Amino acid sequence: MFGTIGEAHVTLSLGNLRCYKGVACVDQERGGGYAKYSSWEQGFHDWYALIHNYYVARGLTTIDKVIPVYAPTPNNADAGYIQSIKHIIDTWHAGSIMK
Results as ranks from 00 to 15, higher is better:
Tyr81Cys: 00
Leu17Met: 11
Asp46Ile: 02
Gly15Glu: 00
Leu14Thr: 15
Lys86Cys: 04
Tyr20Val: 02
Arg18Gln: 02
Gln42Cys: 06
Thr4Ile: 09
Leu60Trp: 05
Ile88Cys: 07
Asn53Ser: 04
Val69Tyr: 14
Ile89Thr: 04
His87Lys: 04
Thr73Ser: 13
Ile67Ser: 07
Ala79Glu: 12
Thr11Cys: 04
Thr73Asn: 03
Asn16Ala: 05
Leu12Ser: 13
Asp64Arg: 05
Leu12Asp: 12
His93Thr: 10
Ile67Trp: 02
Gly32Glu: 07
Lys21Ile: 08
Ala71Tyr: 05
Met98Tyr: 10
Lys99Arg: 13
Ala71Ile: 11
Tyr54Phe: 13
Val10Met: 09
Thr4Tyr: 06
Gly22Thr: 08
Val26Asn: 03
Val26Pro: 03
Glu41Gln: 12
Asn53Lys: 05
Cys19Thr: 07
Ala8Gly: 01
Arg58Lys: 15
Pro72Glu: 04
Tyr34Leu: 05
Asn16Glu: 12
His93Gln: 11
Asn75Leu: 13
His87Cys: 10
Tyr81Ala: 10
Ser38Phe: 07
Gly31Asn: 07
Arg58His: 13
Tyr54Ser: 12
Asp78Arg: 03
Ile63Met: 01
Lys36Phe: 03
Gly3Glu: 07
Ile82Asp: 08
Ile97His: 14
Glu7Arg: 07
Trp92Gly: 10
Thr73Ala: 06
Asn75Glu: 07
Ile51Pro: 04
Ser13Lys: 13
Asp27Thr: 02
Thr11Met: 00
Cys25Ile: 12
Tyr37Gln: 01
Ser39Asn: 06
Leu17Trp: 08
Lys65Asn: 09
Arg18Val: 09
Asn53Leu: 00
Tyr48Lys: 15
Asn53Cys: 02
Leu50Met: 15
Leu12Ile: 02
Trp47Gly: 09
Lys86Asp: 08
Ala79His: 08
Trp40Arg: 04
Cys25Lys: 00
Thr91Lys: 08
Tyr48Thr: 13
Asp27Tyr: 01
Pro72Cys: 11
Gly15His: 07
Lys36Ile: 04
His45Gln: 12
Tyr54Met: 12
Phe2Thr: 06
Cys25Leu: 10
Ser38Trp: 03
Gly43Phe: 03
Trp47Leu: 08
Ser13Asp: 14
Gly80His: 04
Ala57Asp: 15
Tyr81Leu: 01
Lys99Cys: 06
Asp64Phe: 05
Thr91Ala: 13
Gly80Cys: 10
Leu17Cys: 09
Gln28Glu: 15
Gly6Val: 14
Asp27Phe: 07
Ile88Arg: 01
Pro68Thr: 03
Glu41Ala: 11
Ala24Ile: 14
Ala79Val: 06
